[in-house]
């Protein structure tokens, strides 16, 4: 048994890489998979906060790399899901404390015991990004439907292709169907047209994400949250299932048609 390493990256900051990592980790673990998430954002760690495991950190990724502790000692078991682990980033160091080779070594060490290794990449295209991408079997690009985020995603895809990795897949995050309908936001097809890569999921803007992030309880655990559902669907697609895309736009379409009918 060998785990698949999936790196979540974006180029631009603040588009939801960490949220996506935490939620996909939770969703995959809910589906019975053995999952470990790694926070590669050394110096600015926050995956632990989003997963609600901050107060359990003793050792971190840099300790592992420098041989200060055994790998198992840095792995924090999730408080809700017994098959979900987190390896946190160091808070007091910088990205140069870890090399791409270190990341490959750590992931290779984890592979026999897990189904999925999720690596949360920092923003940017420098060392931290290179560290996060080095061990990846698959790469997920997170973007929001904004021109700046799409531009950065495009740059990142170019860099990943230059590294000789497989073409990454795309998650469009913080999608607002009604803004797209009014023509105030890029639509899915606008984004896909520029990036020309496979779409693996659309996550709607959802207040539940902000609430869950603050609480440290990923939204994927919440049956009622729309965004949680979206992440669970992405997890199923990652596991190879065919899951139809949530009808985010269709609802508005039907609503529109009703309004039009009434107007007539």
């Amino acid at each position: 048994m060998s785990a698949k390493t999936i790196t979540i990256t974006s180029g631009k900051g603040g588009v939801g890489k960490t949220t996506a990592t935490a939620n996909l980790g939770v969703a995959l673990a809910l589906a019975g998979k053995r999952v470990v998430t790694i926070d590669a954002d050394i110096g600015l760690r926050n995956l632990d906060v989003v997963m609600g495991l901050e107060n359990r950190i003793v050792y971190d990724l840099v300790d592992v790399v420098e041989g200060q502790c055994r790998l198992r000692q840095a792995m924090i078991r999730d408080k809700r899901l017994s098959e979900l682990y987190l390896i946190p980033a160091a808070q007091t160091r910088d990205k140069t404390a870890v090399s791409p080779q270190d990341m490959i070594r750590v992931c290779d060490q984890l592979r026999p015991d897990f189904d999925y290794i999720l690596v949360d990449s920092p923003a940017g295209i420098e060392r931290g990004f290179q560290n996060a991408v080095a061990p990846a079997d698959e790469i997920l690009i997170v973007t929001t439907p904004e021109v700046s985020a799409v531009r950065d995603a495009d740059r990142i895809i170019g860099l990943i292709e230059a590294e000789g990795k497989d073409t990454p897949q795309l998650i469009i995050n913080r999608f607002k169907p009604d803004m797209v309908r009014r023509g105030d936001m890029l639509g899915t097809s606008d984004v896909i047209e520029v990036l020309a890569i496979q779409l693996v999921g659309i996550v709607p803007e959802d207040e539940a994400i902000i609430i869950s992030t603050n609480k440290g309880v990923p939204a994927a655990l919440d049956d009622k949250a729309l965004a949680g559902q979206a992440f669970r669907n992405i997890a199923r697609r990652i596991m190879g299932e065919e899951v139809p895309f949530m009808s985010l736009r269709d609802t508005s379409g039907i609503f529109n048609r009703l309004v039009n009918l009434i107007k007539q």
Binding site: R151, D152, D154, R155, I157, G158, L159, E161, V194, A196
Partner: peptide, 21 residues
Amino acid sequence: RSGQKIHHLSHVTVIGDVNPG
């Protein structure tokens, strides 16, 4: 893609898109 730059002394033909950036 964004960030990629082509320099050439003569003609250039691209089969594909030239993205913003």
